[in-house]
């Protein structure tokens, strides 16, 4: 079917929401509670748009398109309303952007900028919280920065399936917490990090990233998770010392922006002090550091000697399901073409 958004004639299929069609076509409608992985929650109201012939604005995340629909997403009145929404959120938010580790990667901050919120007109009381929750090795929870988009709650329930967190109290006193306020380590939390990945503000932040660097100082590099066979695409956020500060992920990949505890929080082994940094040669039962020259010579000498003396089949190699395709290719080529044996295997079976 055809419809018009901001004067652009667009193609859409039945059942799509206005927001989905807009995103497909590069039209950015602000949103805080929307995730393609979740049932639309319609809570933040940031994605309100005007539809020709409809009196009040509707939320783009919940409204399905219909043929001939004419939609406007950034009219002056919508901008005004979004500004009010951002102000309302900021009025009940711990605004400490100057030192917040989320700054630069915070949707609330981005929208405050986009809608020119210079001063919050509705200052007043803030919901009372007991302070930052630091109850696990992976991330902190800071309710004072929570804007109640409910993504964390919904991801935990709809994607992870655990529902470790939910809402407490109602109205102005609503907050996200665990049953009986128990520490995450004492309940069924899997520490998958789904909630941390999608939190639009600094309410959920990786502990490893606190007080390390501003977001715009971090270098991002795309990689594939080294753990199981799903092949999650991850983004390593690196500081100036080549330390992995945190792991994030995009939505357009096999894992669709999702992670498990190992991929999200378990890649810090890269920077471990225990890493091997120099070749080692064993002498009289003890290892000593050696130069690459010496170590490679020693390996080549021994493999060459044994091949020449006993034939290639006296050598064997275990390649690795942890190494890249290119490295596996070279390892089997090495054994076959250089050593002359087919005795190369890896632990596929284990």
């Amino acid at each position: 079917m055809k419809l018009t958004i901001n004067g652009e004639k667009l193609e859409a299929t039945e059942g799509q929401t206005i927001l989905e069609v807009a995103q497909e076509n590069g039209i950015d409608i602000p949103n805080l509670c929307y995730s393609p992985e979740l049932k639309p929650e319609g809570a933040c109201r940031m994605c309100v748009v005007d539809i020709e012939g409809v009196a009040d604005p509707v939320t783009a995340c919940t409204t399905e398109v219909s043929a001939g629909m004419v939609v406007e997403t950034e009219t002056p009145s919508l901008k005004k309303m979004r500004k009010v929404l951002v102000e309302l959120m900021l009025a009940n938010h711990d605004v400490e952007c100057l030192t917040c580790d989320k700054a630069g990667d915070c949707k609330l901050q981005d929208y405050a900028y986009r809608y020119s919120v210079k001063k919050v007109r509705f200052e007043g009381e803030k919901t009372e919280f007991k302070g930052i929750k630091d109850d696990n090795p992976f991330f902190i929870r800071d309710n004072r920065k929570c804007i109640l988009c409910y993504k964390c709650v919904n991801l935990c329930k709809q994607v992870q399936g655990e529902a470790s967190i939910n809402l407490e109290n109602r109205g102005f006193d609503t907050r996200v917490t665990t049953a009986f306020d128990l520490p995450l380590e004492e309940i069924n939390c899997q520490f998958c990090g789904l909630c941390v990945n999608e939190c639009p503000t600094g309410a959920l932040m990786e502990k490893s990233a606190l007080r390390k660097a501003r977001n715009w100082e971090l270098k991002k590099g795309s990689t594939i998770c080294p753990y199981c066979g799903v092949g999650c695409e991850l983004e390593l956020n690196i500081d100036e010392n080549d330390q992995i500060v945190k792991v994030t992920t995009n939505s357009d990949n096999v894992n669709r922006g999702q992670t498990c505890v190992k991929g999200k929080f378990g890649l810090d082994f890269v920077n471990s002090e225990e890493r091997l940094t120099k070749p080692l040669i064993k002498e009289e039962g003890r290892f000593r550091e050696a130069s690459w020259e010496e170590a490679l010579d020693k390996v080549a000498d021994n493999f060459g000697r044994i091949r020449d003396e006993f034939g290639g089949d006296a050598t064997a190699a275990l390649s690795s399901a942890k190494c890249t395709n290119e490295e596996n290719y070279l390892m089997q080529k090495f054994m076959r073409a250089v050593m002359g044996t087919n005795s190369v295997d890896h632990c596929a079976r284990l």
Binding site: A321, N328, N342, V344
Partner: peptide, 15 residues
């Protein structure tokens, strides 16, 4: 089970 078992097999790390 492992992130590149498939690749290791595909690339002939098998006897």
């Amino acid at each position: 089970g492992q992130n590149n078992v498939q690749g290791a097999c595909d690339l002939g790390a098998l006897p």
